[in-house]
């Protein structure tokens, strides 16, 4: 230690040695190749306006944001973080959902058996299932609250009209995702809730029967419905909603960032 504050006896303490290791790791080429200039994890990070910009510009995730945002938009009381939390719930659901897919077969009656086995045979299985289910309900709630907050701020007014329309599509997709997922445990609750829900589609004038046949893959909720809802739930709908979310976030920025102040 060149200029370290040695404890009186001339030996380096453990803390100092650890700090030295940390310094060397942070200074290594590998570390610097991962954390780009301006990253707070990089050696010699200082809080300067330039580094603050780099943090956002040099990171693919933070790059969702602009380097600078309106001061009032940062206040928690403006957006209540509701859009961001909706997005976060979607990420939590993706992660827990992938875990659940490892243990799930979309066939009748294996689907039910697999879900029941989560609580007995799988480490943290029940907890992850709970997270997925409560997270899904929470996402429906946050997306709805996000919509009402956007309305009360008049944030759908020009130039943000189209982003509101994208949002309505997102609301619809969120409900569809939740609804298709509701069938998957294949218990009495799932079967009959989805039966009641899809019956409404059957009331579509003129081609109601066709609509309900395409939805169910048959004339009533059964094995084919389960497979259909499964594919929609884990593949088709997430794919579509990610596209719409990308447009949504992009438009938030292109429309000049957060609306307001009021």
């Amino acid at each position: 230690m060149a200029n370290g504050t040695n404890s009186g006896n001339g030996k380096t303490t453990l803390g100092e040695r650890l700090a030295g290791v940390g310094d060397r790791i942070q200074g290594s080429e590998a570390w610097e190749s991962i954390f780009r200039p301006g990253s707070p994890f990089r050696k010699g990070y200082t809080d300067s306006p330039r580094n603050r910009s780099y943090v956002v510009m040099n990171n693919v995730l933070y790059h969702l944001h602009a380097v600078k945002v309106k001061r009032h938009g940062v206040r928690l009381s403006y957006t209540l973080c509701l859009g961001g939390l909706t997005f976060f719930m979607f990420i939590v659901l993706t992660i827990t959902g992938i875990f659940l897919m490892f243990y799930y077969r979309p066939t009748s009656p294996e689907a039910y058996v697999d879900i029941a086995a989560l609580s007995t045979d799988v480490a943290f299985g029940q907890l992850v299932r709970n997270l997925h289910r409560w997270g899904a309900h929470l996402m429906v709630i946050t997306v709805f609250l996000h919509m009402t907050r956007v309305f009360y701020h008049g944030a759908y007014k020009p130039p943000r009209e189209f982003n509101w329309v994208v949002g309505v599509v997102l609301l619809f997709l969120t409900l569809l995702l939740s609804f298709t997922g509701y069938l998957l445990p294949w218990d009495q609750l799932a079967l009959w809730a989805v039966t009641v829900g899809t019956n409404m589609g059957g009331y579509t004038p003129v081609f109601g029967d066709q609509v309900s046949f395409v939805l169910l893959g048959g004339i009533q909720v059964g094995g084919p419905t389960l497979l259909r809802f499964y594919v929609l739930h884990v593949l088709a709908l997430p794919f579509i909603i990610v596209i719409f979310m990308s447009v949504h976030f992009w438009r938030v920025r292109k429309d000049g960032g957060i609306s307001g102040p009021l």
């Binding site: 603050r52 910009s53 943090v55 956002v56 944001h65 600078k68 945002v69 938009g73 940062v74």
Partner: peptide, 9 residues
């Protein structure tokens, strides 16, 4: 009136 996204937001 703008602030840096990092760290504020």
């Amino acid at each position: 009136d703008k602030v840096s996204t990092w760290p504020h937001l």
